[in-house]
Design a protein around this nucleic acid. Structure first.
Lengths: 327, 327
DNA sequence: TTGAAAGCGCTAACAT
DNA sequence: ATGTTAGCGCTTTCAA
């Protein structure tokens, strides 16, 4: 900027005025300055600008499990849309379900003075965020509640969705309903497991623990788990898959073993209706989750100081065929 | 930091030394400083740090079309992985195929002094980047070459992949092979169209322009285009779909009209083999594209000043069934 | 081992 | 309409 001032034979402040479209610069002076800017290829340094102006880097930090997962990529997309409307840029990072990595990421983001954070928690304890919150960084959690602190969070109706899925299978006459789910340490997984158990209990069907396989984290492990289930002497006649990766694994296993096993999964898939057996799912809106979280965060940044909110988004059973296979 | 210095009764510089793990601080002094840091909830301000140190914000900018699209979300994931290994953070933005938005995004990123940019170009003219490049911002393009400037780029073998797909359909005896593709203004779309034409020409099959539908940008528009094709008096017996969205649209149309039409698509889908008719695709690796682009960018940032590189990643025809339907 | 002073690029506040 | 000065929070440089 100093170079520009020199080249245009004006003061620093005049250049600053032109760059920021402030009033009070004669058109010809402004033109001279703009010419110098173009010639020198000057670009305002936002680091210095933000530093001088105080806070407000107009940046949001987004920490999710894995952008490569369609669920999170749609959430990311929604966050970006809101951010763009409001003039924020988004810094993203994947925690890969690793609490240490989550902390590192959040730390980096806070050090870069993001104005706010959107976090899908990987760890179970977020007390380390207390200083950040005091520092003025707003935080909204998504998909899972934070551990040991009170903060805004947008969740899905995990229990209700899982219960409805399981009930649907029971309604078809199934009595041996298995569940394949992610590690129970993950909030959503535990909740969906709870919903599954509730449904069985409500119908007086005992939970057979051998039919509960919570632990696999990717499609391959889920496939192995379901193959294993289907190889039991008294295999399940129906399976509830706890998320999109479990769904893929379960479909592969059922497909390959050619079994006429009913399947309902949590999370919708774009191609669900085009599958060999169209997939019955517990659908919800990842886009809505991202949007609501980002909007709530922006409201907080605009000064909304109300008590922490807990928003639960609805789920819906979408019947397409795979869940209506008779026992 | 001043507050910390005061609280610990040391100088600013000593706090700086502790924060940055520099040598030359007595353990007890360091401990006192750390205690003050913890008490006050101090977090180093990276903006100020970067400003003072000169360049090197350890941040990369990523501009793609849409994170919500699985192709780009996997690219993003790969970029993140490389960035993480090398200690960079990634700021992402979706251009939505809008050149103005692309420019705005890049401008914001440069103003925030990202060290390097990874860009899937939306616009056709990137001369506006010349000052940025002179300013020292490294840029690597992905998926499509930039317009009017010479820079690093990682591409797919679009022509070859499309040609192979079309040849495969011709090999099955099809003579009325349609193509549904994105707007021809998009590089990949134009290239794939060229590959389609090449294959037809090489086999002496004339291109029937009514069978070429390049223009739809989303699955719904592609579905409408394919429905339209199938409603022709002499409909195509085979369709080549130019990307993942076209693929979804084509599948829906073919599925709903119950037509025994052969289909090969560019881009692989996770569930391809589980579809009612397992999908024959031109597969490639979005992950590899992201990884190679990010690694090349990092090499540039580490001082590699060689001439601009143009890397072309291979594609592979994966036969699964939908492309082997007889005419 | 520790500290004081200068300055990164910019803008707020106050001149002129 | 334009310029001067000070200082954002940090690190570099040099001194003690």
């Amino acid at each position: 900027m100093r170079d520009v001032a020199e080249a245009a034979a004006v003061s620093l402040k005049t250049v600053s005025r032109v760059v920021n479209d402030e009033a009070g610069v004669r058109p010809d002076t402004a033109a001279r300055v703009r010419e110098a800017i173009a010639t020198l290829g000057f670009r305002r340094n936002d680091m210095a600008r933000v530093l001088r102006q105080g806070q407000a880097s107009r940046t949001l930090g987004l920490v999710i499990e894995d952008v490569g997962n369609p669920f999170y990529s749609v959430v990311t997309r929604a966050v970006e849309e809101v951010a763009r409307e409001r003039g924020y840029l988004v810094i993203t990072g994947s925690s890969d379900e690793d609490p240490a990595r989550e902390r590192d990421l959040i730390r980096s983001l806070v050090e870069r003075r993001v104005d706010g954070l959107l976090v899908v928690p990987a760890g179970g304890d977020h007390r380390f965020l207390v200083p950040e919150l005091r520092l003025g960084t707003a935080v909204v959690f998504m998909d899972r509640p934070p551990g040991n602190i009170d903060a805004d969070v947008i969740l899905l109706d995990n229990v209700g969705g899982a219960r409805r899925a399981t009930e649907h299978l029971l309604d078809q006459g199934h009595r041996r309903v298995a569940m394949v789910g992610d590690a129970p340490a993950i909030f959503t997984s535990a909740e969906r497991l709870a919903g599954y158990r509730q449904a069985l209990a409500a119908r007086g069907v005992g939970v057979e623990e051998r039919l509960v396989r919570v632990g696999p984290h990717d499609a391959d492990a889920a496939e192995a788990a379901v193959r294993d289930l289907l190889a039991l002497p008294d295999p399940p006649t129906a399976v509830f898959a706890g998320n999109n990766r479990m769904a893929v694994g379960a479909m592969r296993a059922i497909h390959r073993l050619g079994a006429g096993v009913a399947l309902v999964v949590f999370d919708d898939l774009e191609l669900a209706e085009l599958l060999a057996i169209p997939l019955t799912v517990v659908a919800h809106s990842p886009h809505e989750m991202g949007r609501q979280a980002a909007e709530l965060l922006c409201r907080r940044l605009d000064g909304d100081g109300g008590p922490p909110r807990r928003i639960v988004l609805p789920t819906e059973l979408v019947v397409r065929g795979s869940g209506e296979v008779a026992p």
